[in-house]
């Protein structure tokens, strides 16, 4: 597929999702262009994480469509596994594979899914680990890593699939404060290299610094969106104001 055949990298239309009686997403529409960096902020329970997890169908929406690179991935006939290869995801709790070495964590998926030979994948793992300062840990098991190191590993594990977009689900929320910086730096460098990025975060300073656009989600909808200057500088929605008032002191 040529890149010109779709307007947006991800185009979400009227997404709905309920967990039992809880209507978590109440009609979310948004599009993300190639190379864009979009931060999603808002109070917990507002639907941020669910929205992000819908983008690669870790949560299956009840209604609405998600068109990724021109393909509606909510269509049941679509092989979601193929599309997930192009969408890297990083989780709050790292979810590195404890039974594999650091290097194996990275090489497993590209080799298993036939994207790379073992030798190629190992070469790439070296390069990626070097980039995030973990090269000397490549033969260790994740239990020997700190939280920040685990999260850096999780990021390069996702990058090893050479994704077209990276999804971050509160990547620093489970970290000790002194480790937040090292992980944010890795994400910043990614952004600098032009990676399309969607990030759910509570790090307002970071969101303000790296984002092209910021979405404020509350009550299952995107209550307000705009450039960081607009949203942080002069929020229009009273709920945005209230939220920012609480977190920015």
């Amino acid at each position: 597929m040529t890149e010109a055949s779709y307007e947006y990298l991800i185009n979400v239309t009227d997404l709905h999702k309920s967990f039992g009686d809880l209507h978590v997403l109440q009609g979310v529409s948004e599009h993300i262009s190639k190379g864009e960096v979009v931060s999603i902020i808002g109070p917990s329970g507002g639907g941020k994480s669910t929205f992000l997890r819908c983008l690669n169908l870790l949560e299956v929406p009840d209604a609405g469509s998600i068109v990724f690179e021109g393909v509606d991935i909510t269509d049941k006939k679509v092989d979601i596994n193929l599309h997930r290869q192009k969408m890297g995801m990083v989780f709050q709790h790292f979810n590195v594979f404890p039974h594999m070495t650091v290097a194996e964590n990275i090489t497993m998926a590209p080799v298993l899914l036939g994207k790379k030979t073992k030798a190629e994948a190992e070469e790439m793992a070296k390069e990626l680990l070097n980039r995030v300062g973990l090269l000397e840990k490549s033969k260790e098991y994740p239990k020997r890593l700190s939280g920040g190191q685990k999260q850096r590993l999780a990021i390069v594990r996702a990058l090893a699939m050479e994704p077209d977009v990276m999804l971050f689900d509160e990547p620093t929320s489970a970290l000790d404060p002194e480790m937040v910086g090292e992980v944010l730096n890795v994400i910043k460098n990614l952004v600098k290299d032009g990676m399309t990025t969607v990030i759910v975060t509570h790090e307002m300073g970071f969101a303000r610094e790296v984002s092209d656009r910021v979405l404020f989600m509350d009550g299952g909808i995107i209550a307000e969106k705009g450039t960081p200057e607009e949203l942080f500088g002069s929020p229009q929605n009273p709920r945005t104001k209230e939220f920012l008032g609480k977190v920015l002191y």
Partner: peptide
Amino acid sequence: EAARSLGL
């Protein structure tokens, strides 16, 4: 979730 998100 991590494995599925990689495309497995």
